[in-house]
Design a protein around this nucleic acid. Structure first.
Length: 271
DNA sequence: CAACCGCCCTGGGAGC
DNA sequence: TGCTCCCAGGGCGGTT
C-alpha cells in the first residue's frame, strides 16, 4: 500500500527512464480507475517528458503537452518494462516510449488515478488544493503541528494522517512514528505539548527517509519499478504486530480501530 | 468548522 | 477442495 516513501521510490525509479523521452503511444486497457482515465491522455503521443515530480502521494509527469497526475491508490504499481512485454491481469495503462520501454501501471483494486491537466496541477487542480506541507521539507515543523492542533480533540494519529495538516503520512508510518515518539495514538492532538511535537516531527521525517532508503514497505502489492520488493517491512515495530510483544519492553501490543484504520500501540511505551 | 463515517475495489486468508 | 465472509485502506463526499 503506497504511502509517501513508496511513491517517492516509484518516482526515483521511473524518472531516469522517462525524462527526455518522447511518448509514442498511450495504451489504456481499462478506464475504470477511481475516476475515469482522462481521454485527453490519448493526445499525448508525440509529447516529450520533461520531469517527474511528486507532491504528497501524487506523481506529476510534466510533458511538452501538459501534465499527467498519477495516484497509486491502495494497490497501484509502476514498472518500466520492454514495450513488447505481454500485459497481465490488472495492467491498465502503458505509456509507450520511443526508447522501446514502457511505463506500465498495474492496479488490482483500481483506487488509483491517471488524470490529464493542461496546467501545472499545483496551481488550481482541485485534487492538489489545500494540501499541507511536505513532511521531508523545512516547511514541516513542530511549530506548525503545535499551532494547527490547538483546541482540537482529534486523536493525534488521525491528525497526522490528515492531508490538510501534513501530506503523505499514511497508516503504516503514523503507527510507527507514534511508537518511536512514545505518544499514545488516541491522545488529543490539542493536548500535546510543543516539546513532544519537537520530538515527533524529526521522528516522522526519519521514519519516512529510512523507508525510502529501504525501497519502501512491501506488504502484498508494492514493488519497486524493477519488480523488487521494498525492505522496510523488516523495520516495523508495531504495524501488523497487534497482540505480539513490544520489541522494547515486551508488553503485549494493543490493536484498536481509529478512523476506520487499524491502530497498534504499546500501552506501556506510549502515553 | 471539526469530526466522523460510508464508499469505491479485489485478492488473500480464515473458517466451515 | 471449494465456498463464503471479512479485511486491507487513501481520500472524497456527505452528515452530524
Amino acid at each position: 500500500m503506497p504511502e509517501l516513501p513508496e511513491v517517492e521510490v516509484s518516482r526515483r525509479g521511473i524518472e531516469p527512464h522517462l525524462v527526455g523521452q518522447t511518448i509514442t503511444q498511450i495504451i489504456v486497457r481499462d478506464t475504470r480507475l477511481r475516476w475515469p482515465v482522462s481521454p485527453e491522455l490519448n493526445e499525448l503521443a508525440g509529447a516529450q517528458i520533461l520531469a517527474v515530480e511528486r507532491r504528497a502521494k501524487y506523481l506529476i509527469i510534466h510533458t511538452t503537452q501538459g501534465y499527467v497526475i498519477v495516484h497509486l491508490g491502495m494497490s497501484g504499481a509502476l514498472r518500466v518494462i520492454p514495450s513488447a512485454t505481454p500485459a497481465v491481469k490488472h495492467d491498465h495503462i502503458d505509456l509507450v516510449l520511443q526508447s522501446g520501454w514502457s511505463l506500465r501501471y498495474n492496479d488490482p483494486r483500481r483506487f488509483g488515478c491517471w488524470l490529464y491537466s493542461a496546467e501545472h496541477p499545483s496551481s488550481g487542480h482541485p485534487l492538489l488544493q489545500g494540501l499541507g506541507p511536505e513532511p521531508l521539507t523545512d516547511a514541516f515543523t513542530a511549530d506548525i503541528l503545535y499551532q494547527s492542533s490547538r483546541g482540537r480533540q482529534q486523536a493525534i494519529k488521525t491528525f497526522i494522517m490528515d492531508n490538510h495538516i501534513v501530506v503523505g503520512v499514511g497508516n503504516i508510518y503514523a503507527n510507527e512514528a507514534l511508537f518511536k515518539a512514545g505518544i499514545h495514538p488516541q491522545r488529543a492532538a490539542g493536548r500535546i505539548s510543543l516539546k513532544r511535537y519537537q520530538q515527533l516531527v524529526p521522528i516522522i521525517k526519519d521514519t519516512l527517509t529510512k523507508a525510502i532508503a529501504q525501497g519502501g514497505t512491501t506488504l502484498q502489492d508494492f514493488t519497486q519499478v524493477d519488480g523488487q520488493p521494498g525492505y522496510f517491512k523488516q523495520e516495523l515495530m508495531v504495524y501488523g504486530r497487534g497482540g505480539k510483544m513490544c520489541m522494547v519492553c515486551r508488553t503485549r501490543l494493543k490493536e484498536i480501530r481509529l478512523g476506520q484504520r487499524s491502530t497498534v500501540y504499546c500501552p506501556r511505551c506510549q502515553r
